[in-house]
Design a protein around this nucleic acid. Structure first.
Lengths: 348, 348
DNA sequence: CTTGGCACTCGGATAAGCGGAGTGCTAATG
DNA sequence: CATTAGCACTCCGCTTATCCGAGTGCCAAG
């Protein structure tokens, strides 16, 4: 789509005004705001053209115009003037990430940060373990037939799980089994560990080494269940959305919170954005998920040592200040990537 | 407070009607519903008395009556006829708890259960570790100066934490240190462990055994921070409250969700109910926390081997069906207590 | 004590009227 | 030909008036 300069400034000003005020913008207001010394009548003519193009529309005959979904899209793609982050905000954000090396907590903090700074909801796609590499496993005997397994992956994440076993294992057996794992599988992907285990299991148990058998018995279940992806979504600041005037209708909020509970739609959406480099923006119904019809989502992938492993984002009303939210999401993704990398640099 | 039989049945019927319909109850409706063949005029007289006693009131002159906070209180204390749980619901609830022995997950499930069954918000007070006994600690070397500590308490809870250390420790040193801990402190309370550590630290480091020094250096920080209580509140099904007609005003929801975020009020409230045995019910403003003015909270403590360690509850509108919610909370507390005890029976 | 009757009150729904903001069209202008 | 002033028109939101129904309180009779 191509617009002449005047139409572009006009549309930009209109969208900016509407984002700030939340009221349909009329020709008089727009003419006054515009520095071009145009009469309201001229502005009306241009607005009429923009309406024909489907970029703006009137809620009713005698109201001003508001951007359509396509209008927002054009605005975001072609007209947006990104505001640089305020120095203070930037420092606050950096503070939040410093002195923290636990990857789990880093993700939590990222999500909180996004919601605090934007006053909308922050969201983080937590990568499943599919792609992470096996680093270390430990078994701790809890009771006669219960073993605590602690799985550590190369990205520094720790996961523990209590596993019921068929028979009782001595502490020494468990140590042997753990050593076996740590030597054989260190550095391979979890999926490969799983494949390896499956292969072992197919062997006749007679010819199996005692230690291998123990390892299999204890950790088999762990990897059985664990490989089903395990991607998860973390949300913060949902309550901020209650304060957003555009969403003040209970039904809209219900739809939204329903989506927050099931999380599937969010997961799909964030996952899609992981495939793309740079910021992804879904405006209103663009995402295709009805529950997000009244919302926009701004997302950016984050990486760990250069490999993209997840996404951070903000969910807010379609009428949000994209010029402010985009840099926040962008910077958060960068800071998070940085924090994750340095935290694992400190791993050896 | 003493009422004659007729006034009691009348009040009970009024409250039940109002809880079911949500509309102020007029004399005609009440007379019809009542099986006493009273005329509306008589009912009006009785209602007038009840109003003088502060148990009911009219929102305005020509509306019916609705219960006051005191009216609900009297109803709950003296008039309530608890409905036994439906067999199916009971089985569903039992199902939810069976096949789960991880205490953390049990608490999550309890909270979810409460919200699912009642269609309000479920809440669980998660006991801090102050009272739990030390069972076992493990150190895992993550990087040259980072050690993963895994703390297991006697109630089966597992907590892990990455601790930065001043110098690098060899795996063997860590094993020794862990053994030291596990032998010296097994079965003592975490608070005592902390006291023990402090005492050790006061000794001149020269005369300290090498292993003790390692143990101190690695785990000192863990117990430093960890003893600050750590009680926590877990919430589920907040979104259910969006569907409650009595709370459909955005401001009320805002107050409520604000309280959900900070959690302090909830924590205090649940903590109070832990001191009491049996069901606690706070109606409307009774709790004293303004954020819960429009809500009632039904709570019951749960225990682990007879010792009360936490509380489960439901947060809903004041106009809730107490006769249904109370047994749900009660049964959940019992089931949870049972599940926690059997899960630790299986510990040795 | 109970009841029927009756005047009274109040909220909610409906309709009417009004002012303001904004539009679209037309004709005049540079 | 783009721009502009003028003007009739539309529609929303607000206020006011009206009416109806539900419910009350009180009184006098049973």
């Amino acid at each position: 789509m191509k617009l002449n300069d005047r139409a572009e400034t006009l549309l930009r000003t209109l969208v900016e005004l509407y984002i700030n005020e939340g009221q349909p913008v009329g020709s008089r207001t727009l003419a006054r705001q515009l520095k071009l010394n145009l009469s309201p009548a001229t502005v009306r003519n241009v607005m009429s053209d923009l309406e024909d193009l489907g970029l703006i529309h009137s809620p009713h005959t005698s109201a001003g115009r508001i951007p359509t979904q396509e209008g927002y899209r054009f605005f975001v793609d072609s007209l947006l003037r990104i505001k640089p982050l305020e120095q203070i905000t930037l420092e606050e954000m950096q503070d939040k990430f410093s002195n923290e090396s636990d990857p789990q907590l880093l993700l939590t903090k990222a999500s909180e940060l996004l919601s605090q700074v934007t006053h909308f909801a922050g969201v983080v796609l937590i990568p499943g373990q599919r792609s992470s590499l096996f680093r270390q496993i430990e078994f701790v005997r809890l009771a006669s037939q219960r073993v605590l397994t602690i799985l550590i992956t190369d990205d520094g994440r720790v996961q523990n799980r209590v596993i019921p076993t068929d028979r009782s294992y001595a502490a020494s057996e468990l140590v042997e089994a753990a050593n076996f794992f740590n030597q054989v599988y260190a550095g391979t992907s979890l999926a490969d560990v799983r494949r390896g285990l499956l292969k072992e299991m197919q062997k006749d148990s007679d010819e199996m080494h005692r230690i291998t058998a123990t390892a299999l018995a204890v950790a088999g279940k762990l990897f059985d269940d664990e490989d089903d992806g395990g991607d998860a979504v973390m949300l913060s600041g949902e309550e901020n959305l209650l304060n957003v005037p555009d969403l003040c209708q209970i039904e809209k909020l219900q739809k939204l919170f329903d989506a927050f509970k099931t999380k599937q739609d969010l997961l799909d959406l964030l996952d899609r954005s992981m495939k793309v480099s740079g910021i992804s923006i879904f405006i209103g119904g663009e995402s295709g998920y009805r529950s997000l019809d009244d919302c926009s989502v701004v997302m950016a992938p984050y990486d760990h040592d250069g490999e993209i492993i997840g996404t951070v984002g903000v969910i807010g009303p379609t009428r949000m200040s994209y010029e402010e939210v985009i840099p926040v999401v962008d910077v958060t993704a960068r800071l998070l990537s940085g924090a994750l990398s340095t935290s694992s640099d400190r791993l050896e």
